[in-house]
Amino acid sequence: MNHPFVLLIGAILSIGLSWNTLIVNPQKHFGQLTTQDEIPKVLNGQQKQGRQVYAESGCVKCHTQQVRYFEQDSKYGPRFTVANDFAGQDKPLLGSHRIGPDLSNLGNNGKYTGGDGRMNLYKTLFHAKESQVMEGSSLASLMPRHYFLFDKVELSSLAPDNEYSELARELGETAGLEEGHGYIPSYRAEVLADYLMSLKLDQSLFVAPIQESSEE
């Protein structure tokens, strides 16, 4: 082997160059963002717990949280995502490929807003195939069911005015439980729903303004 140490130094310099270009320089810029800058997302305590449930449930392997500037992505949000959207977050949940839809703007999806929005989200988590994940799609969802985020209960144990009474009965029927039993969202499902509903791309940024055509 000719000049092995030249080779080693070359490899180290090459890696150092890539580090400087890809990590150090961008970190100087994006790592210094503070709350004084344009940072759209600041999660509250429950939403942070929901984010942890999102990671534990492996959601990020199917769902991205990045809207690119391509036409194909325009349906996922009114603007594309930028580094500011993730400033200060530990291990942003960008995802690397989409098997399911992008969730960057899920909190503004018509199906999951309004009075029934939260219940629809629970139904999606429980049996997405039947409930369809996103509006405007004719395809059945492939999303695996997440029974582990729900607690099995006897329907008679729920108070008549319990907000989950109807949902528990419906989920029980879907899962094929015997008469009188159902599922209600566990605490983990509730905080996960909190987190998912907080995902919104509704703040226009200087570096990524909301496009008017998308708003319409």
Binding site: L22, I23, K91
Partner: peptide
């Protein structure tokens, strides 16, 4: 290091 740079590290 926090934010999107962590994703840069993993992509690289």
């Amino acid at each position: 290091i926090t934010g999107v740079i962590q994703n840069v590290i993993s992509q690289w």
